[in-house]
Design a protein around this nucleic acid. Structure first.
Length: 679
DNA sequence: TAATGGGGGTTTTTT
DNA sequence: ACCCCCATTA
């Protein structure tokens, strides 16, 4: 019998043992969602379902690993490893690799991550000569976001532009042309972006013959975080279950926070429309948070106009809990110092740093705090935000991996060629032009490619030719060579380029070693590249591996990245209107409600201690001494505030005023005077 | 043609 | 503060 850490309650047990029929579990935060899902997988295996005939779709690979790890811990056998699972995108990737022929995809197709897709969008825009006039076009990342939204929500472009980019909505025709060219180019180059993975998977799943095969591969499909699926993902799931009712959907409409990606909680709430005969089980007993924290969460939920499905009740009293605190700070600087002080205070009371998290709405909100933590030598890891920003070198090697399987990948060529000294966009373009044969296509096989590569090398500056030729030669896989050896050869070939192109080359070269090691189990280098894009290092500094395994570190995270996690103590910073809720989201009612759910997710991460920090004012960095007053977050309504203890601004502490940096500009005396003028 | 600097407009969250 | 575009310089 399955033995979780804690016995299942009646509802959880009912869900875990539910028969082979469509099941929906609405599970509020901390109600044992993962435990229940784990137990259900275990029960299915006990019933004799073969592990490889169970598909477990989770939002992150981490969640899949956690569930399978827990099943394995109780079963003690390794066959659990054969349970299929991962994110929708990674599952799509596997399916497309296996069935690329039927879908008309090249065998070694490449996968573009978001930044790659934006670069390709920019390239195509340049070629089309769509330039900025007085009504400027959105920047490349916004253009790809527009494209993604149109694709994932099946909404007309003009409407999406009206909502997202109203200043240039009248240029929708040009943007439509651009998107058409973008799609065509991806096809020519043998490249798929993240959206394409889902779109092709849907094509496959909805195909009469292929779809039947794909669906028949699984006895049971279980989906976690169902409130965050979008239309395309829903279609895939419906298609895979068109003749088989065995599906389990787990989710919580109160935690729907991916609307910007086309997700819609209605797909969870209206699931009976897509899965006939659906039974619903609701979990409300919360095993995570103290009653005081649940009171704050429920007060926030009560403010939601449409309400949340879940009302949380404390299942077991949490010992040593404190009333959640609303901490007013003078400014960002004060907020940094206060958070750090309180983190250390809790640490001294026995709450390890790893059991504490600082959460924020936007990745850049932690910038000042990161400096303060570094100054006080407090170790931390940060989750969320643009992780590849400082990992350009990783993408360089991945580009080389992609090229070995797909020489038509012009994006990869451009990227690598521009690493050569003296080679910029124009030279790179000419070099790629030299690769094309008479039909204007880049040959797809290495035999045909060899003479073209020689032509390419001839276009490059003399002093780079040696390095370039070594690199180009490394693309060809030697006979009897293992994948790892080939990957290592590519790493060696690319190393001088990395050294020439980046300041801190030594650390970067070490990262690449770890990447080569990841090729051990793979069957293709393009697979490794795709999987790295789909599951990038979760935190800054993750690439080099955990540098200090037995040490303790504080967790800094965006709320989005903290989803599914829990901490003894949670510090939510920048709980000021405009930051949380983000002013970008205030344009629409749905936007505001999503921010409210995000706030709810943040609060419900906490077990014992919760603190919300509100800076009273923000300095403008443009003009010295200029600042504006901040309003506390509108989510701190009277109802919510009645569940919180108000902590007023503390007296300025001269000990803490640092000798240099922004704080010195604004001495404690000035703050005190301005503050007293307030009242 | 690559690299650099100034001016102006946008600024979020992730697979 | 960042990114994008354009103009200038080497």
């Amino acid at each position: 019998m399955f033995a979780p850490a804690r016995e299942l309650n009646a509802r959880q047990r009912e869900a875990a043992n539910f028969p082979d029929a469509p099941l929906r579990v609405i599970a509020g935060p901390g109600t044992g969602k993962t435990t229940t899902l784990t137990a259900r997988v275990h029960v299915l295996l006990e019933r004799g379902v073969a592990p490889e005939r169970i598909l477990l779709l989770t939002f992150t690979r981490r969640a899949a690993r956690e569930i399978l790890g827990r099943v394995r811990a109780s079963r003690g056998t390794d066959d659990v490893r054969r349970v299929a699972g991962g994110t929708f995108h990674s599952q799509a990737h596997h399916t497309l690799r296996r069935h690329h022929d039927a879908l008309g995809l090249p065998e070694g197709f490449g996968v573009l991550d978001q930044a790659d897709a934006a670069d390709l969008m920019d390239l195509v825009r340049g070629e089309l000569g769509i330039v900025s006039r007085d009504k400027r076009l959105p920047k490349k990342s916004t253009l790809t976001a527009l494209y993604s939204r149109v694709v994932n929500t099946a909404t007309p472009l003009a409407q999406v532009m009206g909502e997202m980019t109203p200043w240039c909505a009248e240029r929708a025709d040009e943007v439509a042309t651009l998107f058409g060219a973008f799609v065509a180019r991806k096809r020519t180059l043998g490249l798929l972006d993240f959206d394409d993975l889902l779109l092709y998977w849907r094509e496959a799943a909805e195909d009469a013959a292929l779809g039947a095969t794909l669906g028949a591969a699984y006895d049971h499909i279980l989906v976690d975080e169902f409130q965050d699926v979008n239309r395309v993902q829903l279609d895939v799931l419906v298609a895979l279950r068109r003749s088989d009712p065995r599906v389990t959907l787990v989710g919580d409409d109160a935690q729907a926070i991916y609307g910007f990606r086309g997700a819609c909680a209605r797909y969870l709430l209206d699931a009976h429309a897509h899965f006939a005969g659906l039974t619903t089980i609701t979990l409300e007993l919360n095993y995570r948070s103290s009653a005081a924290i649940l009171a704050a969460a429920n007060a926030l939920a009560a403010d939601a106009p449409e309400g949340f499905s879940s009302h949380l009740r404390e299942a077991v009293p949490v010992r040593g809990a404190r009333t959640p605190q609303l901490i007013h700070c003078r400014d960002e600087r004060d907020q940094c110092e206060t958070v750090t002080d309180r983190v250390l205070e809790l640490y001294e009371q026995g709450v390890a740093l790893q059991r504490q998290a600082v959460l924020f709405r936007a990745a850049h909100h932690s910038g000042e705090l990161e400096i303060e933590l570094a100054r006080r030598r407090i170790p931390f890891v940060k989750y969320g935000g643009l992780r590849y920003l400082e990992a350009a070198h990783v993408k360089d090697l991945l580009a080389a991996f992609r090229l070995t399987d797909n020489p038509r990948d012009e994006m990869a060529w451009f990227r690598l060629l521009q690493l050569l000294p003296g080679v910029g966009p124009a030279t790179a373009r000419a070099a790629v032009g030299a690769l094309r044969d008479l039909d204007g296509r880049i040959p797809a096989t290495h035999d045909e490619l060899a003479p073209r590569i020689a032509a390419l090398a001839a276009t490059l500056p003399d002093e780079t030719r040696d390095v370039a030729e070594t690199l180009l030669a490394a693309f060809v896989r030697h006979r009897h060579e293992t994948l790892s050896v080939h990957a290592e050869r590519l790493r060696v070939a690319i190393s001088p380029l990395i050294q020439g192109a980046y300041e801190d080359a030594t650390a970067r070269l070490e990262d690449l070693g770890a990447l080569v090691a990841a090729c051990d189990q793979a069957t293709r280098l393009s697979d490794v590249a795709a999987e790295q894009s789909l599951e990038p290092p979760a935190s800054t500094g993750d690439l080099a591996g955990p540098p200090m395994v037995d040490e303790d570190w504080l967790v800094l995270s965006t709320v989005h990245s903290a989803k599914g996690l829990e901490f003894d103590a949670v510090h939510i910073i920048h709980a000021a209107d405009g930051n949380f809720p983000a002013d970008m989201a205030l344009g629409s009612l749905e936007g505001l409600e999503e921010e409210r759910r995000l706030f709810y997710v943040a609060i419900t991460r906490a077990r014992r201690d919760l603190a919300l920090y509100v800076p009273l004012r923000y300095h403008h960095h443009r003009v010295r001494d200029d600042h504006s007053w901040a309003q506390p977050s509108r989510f701190l309504s009277d109802g919510v505030r009645s569940t919180l203890a108000d902590i007023p601004v503390s007296a300025p502490n001269p000990r803490e005023s640092s000798p240099s940096g922004p704080a010195a500009i604004d001495g404690a005396g000035v703050v005190a005077r301005r503050l007293s003028e307030l009242w």
